[in-house]
Nucleic acid binder design. Sequence first.
DNA 1: AGACACTATGACGATTTTGTGACGGGTGCA
DNA 2: TGCACCCGTCACAAAATCGTCATAGTGTCT
Lengths: 229, 229
Amino acid sequence: MPGKILVVDDEPAIRAMVRFALKQAEYTCSEAGDATEAQALVTADTPDLILLDWMLPGLSGIDYARRLRRERLTQNIPIIMLTARVDEEDKIRGLNTGADDFITKPFSPRELVARVKAVLRRMVPMAVDEVVVSEGLVLDPSTHKVLANDERLSLGPTEFRLLHFFMTHPERVYSRERVLDAVWGNNAYIDERTVDVHIRRLRKALTVSGYDRFIQTVRGVGYRFSGDA
Amino acid sequence: MPGKILVVDDEPAIRAMVRFALKQAEYTCSEAGDATEAQALVTADTPDLILLDWMLPGLSGIDYARRLRRERLTQNIPIIMLTARVDEEDKIRGLNTGADDFITKPFSPRELVARVKAVLRRMVPMAVDEVVVSEGLVLDPSTHKVLANDERLSLGPTEFRLLHFFMTHPERVYSRERVLDAVWGNNAYIDERTVDVHIRRLRKALTVSGYDRFIQTVRGVGYRFSGDA
DNA sequence: AGACACTATGACGATTTTGTGACGGGTGCA
DNA sequence: TGCACCCGTCACAAAATCGTCATAGTGTCT
C-alpha cells in the first residue's frame, strides 16, 4: 500500500506525534521544519501526500502550497493543511491554496490517519504504479500510455496488462499457464492458445518501432521478455 | 470548533436533547420544526451543518435535503439525516438524498456529537479559485468562465466542475468511479454511465474550438485529460 | 526426407465497452 | 404559468476487444 508522507511543521512536538501516528498506520514519513527543507525532500523522493503547517518560518505554508501546485511534477500531490485554530480555516480557504483538506490543531492521531486515508483514497487515483522502462520502451500505468522511442502506441487492455507483466518480469521464461494466471487472473477458464494470440497482437503493435524482438518464444516452454536476442 | 448547526425535527423532545448535546460541545444551534421554518433560518444565517429528520410534516426531510443540494448556495452544507429505524437507512440511501451521514433514533448525545464532528471534519474545501490554463484553454473558477482560444464557451455547472477536475489532474487516467467521487462528491449515488454522458456533453462543447481531443477515453479503464494524442 | 509437435497468423462471431440521441423530471426565471 | 435550461437515466448504435478456430509455418527428431 502506498504511503510516503512528508510532514512539514516547525514544532518538533507536532512532528513527533504525527510521525508516531503515521508509523502506526504503516506509512513511511519524512519530516521538514520549513519550506526549504521540504523542497529538498520533495525533489529527492517525491512523497504521496504532504502535511503542511500553515505557519512556517520563512516561506509560509500557503505560499509553499501554491508553489507546489504550480509545478507540473508536484501538482498532483495531495496537500493537507494544518491550522492552529478553526477560524483560520475560512481564511485559508479563501486564499487559493490548493489544499485538499484541513486539520485543525490539536488533533488526535486517529483523526489524522483517518483524514490521510480519505485524501489518499480520493486523490490518488488507481494504483500507485511505477513507470516501467526498458531500453526505450516506456510503460506508465498511471497514464496508461506506452511509448516506444517517444512514439505513442496503442494497446488494448489485455495487451497492456500483458506487456506490463512482461516488462516487470523480464529475462525469464513463463509458461502459458503462468501468463494466464498473471495477466488474466488466477481463475480464468481460458484456452492456453489464447496467450499465443495476444502475444501475436502485442508483437504486431511493437513491430512498428522494432521492439517485437523483445518478446521471444521458447519452444515447448513459453515466452520470455528480454532486451537481448 | 465553531459550528452553527441547524436542527430540523418536529418533536420538541428531540430538539431539546440535541440542543443540549450541541451546546455542551460548544456548537451554536438553531431549530426548526419543519422545512419552511428551516428554509427561513437557512437563508437568514447559513448554518455549517444541518441535522434533518427524515419524517417531517409538510415537505419531507428527503425532499428538503434534495432541494438544498440543488441550490448553489446550500449544496456544500453537510446534512445528517435522522431516521427512526435502521432499515430506513438503506431506503433513503437509494433515494439520492445528498445526506452525508445517518443517525438512527434513539441516539446518545455522545454519538450525536461524534458524528457531527466527523462530518464537519470531512468537509473538503470545494472552492479552490485559481485560474487553470492548459494550452489555450483557460478556466476561471471565480468568474465561472471558460475560454478556448479567447472564445467564450458555455458549460453547465457539472460540465464546468468536470473540466475543472480534469484540467487540475491532467495526464492521469481516472476511472468513472473516481471521477464521480471527485466531481459529484464522495457520497453521490449516481450511475457510472452518467459520467459518459457528461464527458460527451463536455466534448461537444469543446469540439467547436477543437479541444475535444484533450479528453481521451482509455478503454476498460476510464478517461484522461491530456494535451497529446 | 518425413512425421510429428509446437507456434504464428488471419478470420470470425460473440461479448464488452463506449458513444449518442432522446426523454422525463426538476428548477429558476420571466 | 410558461419557458429555458440542466440533470440523470435509458435504449440503442457504434466500436473495440476478446477468445476460439482453422490453417499455414517452423523447428525437431529419427
